[in-house]
Design a protein around this nucleic acid. Structure first.
Lengths: 207, 207
DNA sequence: CAGTATTATGAGCTTTTGCTCAGTTCCTGG
DNA sequence: CCAGGAACTGAGCAAAAGCTCATAATACTG
C-alpha cells in the first residue's frame, strides 16, 4: 500500500458548486461503503463507483484513503451530534427525566450510522490530532454526566466514577445495538426499559 | 481476490502429530494476527510468518483465508465457552446470585479475546451455516435466561422478553468492553456494579 | 534401511487495490 | 463567444496480498 499520511495535502479546494457537490457525493458514498464493507475492504474504487464519479476525482479532493475517513469523522463531530448535552444541565427534573435526556442524546448521536461510527473509531489510521479530539469529546461527556449526577439529590451510589462509567457505556452500547438491529417500532419500549434500569441503579438501594 | 468458498475442500487432513501441531500453530498465530490487525489487514503471509511456518503450509490446511477465520470460530464454539449456562439452572439462590452467574459466564466467554470475537462475528465472510450456528447459540442463551427469570419469584418486569434482551446484551456488551480496555484490577468493582444494576432492574419497582 | 507417504518450503504467479497523470469536458469572466 | 482555469475522466502503474506448485525434508512401514 502506498505511503499514507503525507504532508498535509489539501489537494484542490473546490471553487465551483459542482465541485462541492462531487465532494459530497464521494463522502456520502464512502460512508455507505465503509459501513457495509468495513474500512480495509471498502476500496476507493468502490467508493468512486458508488458515487458515480471517476477514481481520479476522488483523489482530486482527498490525498489518500485515510483522509476520506478522517473527513467523515470531522463532519460527524462538526455536526455537533456528540455533545449537545447542554440540555442535561438545563433539566433539573426527576432523576428519570435526566436519564431520559441522556438516552435520547445517545440515540441522536447514533442516528447517522452506528457501524460507520465504530469503523471510524476502531479502524483506519486517524491522525493523532483527530484521535485526541475524539477522546476529549468522550471525556467531556463523561465529566458532564458525572457533574449532573453528583448534584442530583436522588443519586445514591457507592462509587460515582464507576457508576458514571457503567451508565454512560451501558446507554451508549445499547443504543448502538438498538440503532443497528432493531426496527424503530421497538425503540420506544426499549428506551423506557433502559431508562428504568439505569434510573433504578442510580437511585441506589431504595430500602 | 481469488474465489472464496469453493466446494468444501478439506485440503490435506493431518495424519501425523507434526501436522496437527503445525495446524495449531497456524490457528494460534491467526488469532493473534486477526486480533491485532483486523481481518482484512491480517494477511495470510503475516499469519504464516508469525506461526513460523511457510505460507505453503498454511494453504495445505486451509483452502483460503476465510476458512482460517471460520475454523477459529468453530473452535471457539466447540470449546463450549458460550453456554455452560447449565449452571444457571442449578443455582436457585437469590436473584443477585443468578445475575452474578450470568455475568461470570459472559466474562468466561470473553476470556479468549474480545477483539477477535468481534472480528469473527462482524468481519470475514463466514458460511451461512456457521452464522446459523452462532445465531442459534445466541438465541438458546437468551431463551435459557428467559426461562430462569420467568421462574424466579423476585423478578418483576413489565415485559419479560424485552427485559431479557436488555439484560443479556447489557451484560454482554459491558463485559466485552471491560475485557478489552480495563485492567483486571478494576474488574471486581465493575462486576459488582453491573450485577447491582441488573438485579435492581429485574426486581422491579420495589416500592 | 529402502521405499513410500506425509508434511514443509518459498519463489513467484495472479488478482486486487491505492493512486497517478495525460488528456477531455465543463464553467466562468471579460 | 472564446480563452483559460476548474473539474472530471479512466487506462494503467506499482505495491500488496491471496494463493499455487515443483521440490525438498521428514516420518512411517515392512
Amino acid at each position: 500500500m502506498p505511503s499514507a499520511n503525507r504532508d498535509i495535502d489539501p489537494r484542490r479546494k473546490p471553487r465551483q458548486v459542482r465541485a462541492e457537490l462531487t465532494r459530497d457525493r464521494i463522502l456520502t458514498a464512502a460512508a455507505h461503503v465503509f459501513s457495509e464493507h468495513g474500512y480495509a475492504a471498502g476500496t476507493t474504487n468502490r467508493i468512486a463507483e458508488r458515487a458515480r464519479v471517476s477514481i481520479g476525482s476522488l483523489y482530486q479532493y482527498f490525498p489518500n484513503k485515510d483522509a476520506v475517513l478522517a473527513e467523515l469523522m470531522v463532519r460527524h463531530i462538526d455536526r455537533g451530534a456528540w455533545t449537545h448535552a447542554d440540555r442535561l444541565d438545563l433539566s433539573p427534573g426527576t432523576l428519570e427525566s435526566v436519564v431520559r435526556v441522556l438516552v435520547r442524546d445517545a440515540i441522536d448521536n447514533h442516528r447517522d450510522d452506528p457501524r460507520l461510527l465504530r469503523i471510524m473509531i476502531e479502524e483506519g489510521q486517524l491522525s493523532a490530532e483527530l484521535r485526541e479530539t475524539i477522546t476529549r469529546h468522550g471525556e467531556r461527556r463523561v465529566a458532564q454526566v458525572r457533574d449532573v449526577f453528583a448534584r442530583h439529590p436522588d443519586v445514591d451510589v457507592r462509587d460515582l466514577d464507576t457508576a458514571v462509567d457503567l451508565v454512560v457505556f451501558t446507554v451508549e452500547l445499547n443504543t448502538h445495538r438498538l440503532a443497528a438491529f432493531q426496527q424503530p417500532a421497538a425503540m420506544g419500549t426499549f428506551e423506557n426499559e433502559l431508562v428504568d434500569m439505569v434510573t433504578r441503579y442510580l437511585r441506589g438501594p431504595s430500602a
